[in-house]
């Protein structure tokens, strides 16, 4: 990141890509709400929800927030905060016996 040579000037996606992402986001949400009512897989729901929401999270961050195309430094700055926040949540849950 010392010079401009790292500037990733890849073209941003077209509006069509954005719409496709939105369709995916909507579909995943609909799917989540759908399986919410399926009692047969109740035990597996939590991991499924975590994975699906992570997918949505990553889609928005990568495409709408352009992390996939922008400077990698932004991913580090944001990802650092995100990781630390996750650490706060998990360690507090562990200390209070709320994990598992």
């Amino acid at each position: 990141m010392e010079s401009s040579s790292h500037t990733r000037k890849a073209a941003h996606p077209t509006p069509l890509t954005y719409v496709k992402i939105a369709a995916n986001l909507g579909a995943i949400t609909a799917f989540e709400v759908g399986i919410f009512y399926v009692e047969a897989i109740e035990d597996a729901l939590i991991p499924i929800f975590i994975v699906l929401s992570a997918v949505k999270f990553v889609l928005v961050a990568m495409f709408y927030m352009h992390l996939k195309f922008d400077e990698r430094l932004f991913s580090w700055l944001f990802g650092g905060g995100l990781l630390l926040a996750t650490f706060v949540i998990l360690s507090l849950m562990a200390l209070f016996g709320a994990l598992l």
Binding site: H6, F74, F78, G80, G81, V88, I89
Partner: peptide, 25 residues
Amino acid sequence: TGIDNRKMLIWVFLGSECMFFGSLI
């Protein structure tokens, strides 16, 4: 870095916001 100051500012700020919502969650 060739990055605009303001764009870096908003990303650092969002990193900080993660901690805010992380604590609430």
